[in-house]
Nucleic acid binder design. Sequence first.
DNA 1: CATCTTGAGAGGTATGACCAATTCGTCTAT
DNA 2: ATAGACGAATTGGTCATACCTCTCAAGATG
Lengths: 253, 253
Amino acid sequence: MPATRGSKPASSSRPRDAGGVRLVYDFLREQILSKSLVTGDRLPPERDLAAQLGVSRPVLREALRALAMIGAVEIRHGAGTVLRRPDAAALGDFFSFAMLQDAPVAEDVMQARIAVECQAARLACARATATDFTTLRAAVEAIEGTVGEVEAGARADHAFHSALVQAGHSPVLAALYATLTEPLYRTHVFRRGTTPSTDEFKAYVIDDHKRILTALVERNVERLDAVLRRHFVIGDEFREQAIQREILSMWSA
Amino acid sequence: MPATRGSKPASSSRPRDAGGVRLVYDFLREQILSKSLVTGDRLPPERDLAAQLGVSRPVLREALRALAMIGAVEIRHGAGTVLRRPDAAALGDFFSFAMLQDAPVAEDVMQARIAVECQAARLACARATATDFTTLRAAVEAIEGTVGEVEAGARADHAFHSALVQAGHSPVLAALYATLTEPLYRTHVFRRGTTPSTDEFKAYVIDDHKRILTALVERNVERLDAVLRRHFVIGDEFREQAIQREILSMWSA
DNA sequence: CATCTTGAGAGGTATGACCAATTCGTCTAT
DNA sequence: ATAGACGAATTGGTCATACCTCTCAAGATG
């Protein structure tokens, strides 16, 4: 085993990684920095890379698994390990482990969801692309076609709101949003809570989604924010009661 | 090796983790969710935990190393492995690998911070108590007394904003805020970035914090939102540039 | 040309042994 | 009685070896 360098911890909030693991991190960093490796490149096979670095394969695997956790590499069984460019979409476990330790209540989760979605919507006014608009229009159409159905309606609703967040082109907000909302849309009761029962209410729900899209198309930040916040008020009480009983069990699945 | 469950990936941007590793993640998630394990608890020794879960020690170590990468556990040689609550300070490697490949992450974290703080501020207009107001007034006074100092000024600034978020009485928002921001205030450059240099600017910063508090006292949601958002614009570019430079040098070791 | 099969390559896992760091208990000196 | 030193036990770090499982590409067959 080669001597480790006397470098400081990778992060002031994490203890110093073991020497073998750190050597792998450092090696890969240098490879990227020197452009010897670029995003998409396949790393040498584990056995070869471990020998090259003078560490054992389990040590190399530890390091690679950790890098996979943050999306820096993608490990594919039988195919090899590829260098990836981390983005916050890879941080689902980070956010879920963080939130699991606070036992959030349903209303709070909705508030955080609102926070993230409204901020992403603001960004979307500046950043949304033609592709985003296409996606959102298709999502509105999907809502129109499924507004009275529990399963499909909830899926279409989620797709619309997720597309809106994606249009903000902020990976951290998108990752947070996914963590916060994915469990929501999986609960039966939440799905029922998003399903209007009267024709009048159905029409209103469809129109509201159109109003959101219109404000975005016009890139009107304040109107979009207002329309969206009012959108969330609708059905809030009904939804909250439904969610409370199921929210905590979902993050462990 | 026990059969793995047919669950989907923890994050949609990462391929499915290998079965053994996933089993460890799931186990720990459940332990946390059920309060069998709380932050600060020491996990069983590797040999014992591996046997308990029916995986080999190298597999357990892979999983733990990955969790250590996001700050969910702290591994100490000779002492044991402790459960930690992840916060962004643990993501040094994430940021460094991301930035080495030109991923624009710092601005995103700030956007998430803004989302959370503004939503918490909205809630605070309805929920702030007399104690909250007392805390916030003291925080403003502390800002007045330290506005030209790098360390103390940053601490006072952070205390004010944290108190504002706390006044929203939303544990999820408060936790997210802590997760996203506490590490920032630890960097020297961020602190310098929040330290006004001219008397005029100092007075403006003090007044802006007072305006925020006034809007809250009047429980004026829209004014508070507007004042706060404008507050964030000030110094944003300076801060971002400073953070990006600092992150590379500080975390890449 | 399209589809299927096979073999090589590459990741996934287990076992056992040994090394290194930390913690705790015991003994000795003051 | 207290403090410090030392050694043993505990626990993480690493290595070597063997075997299993998945993926992919090349070759064979219809």
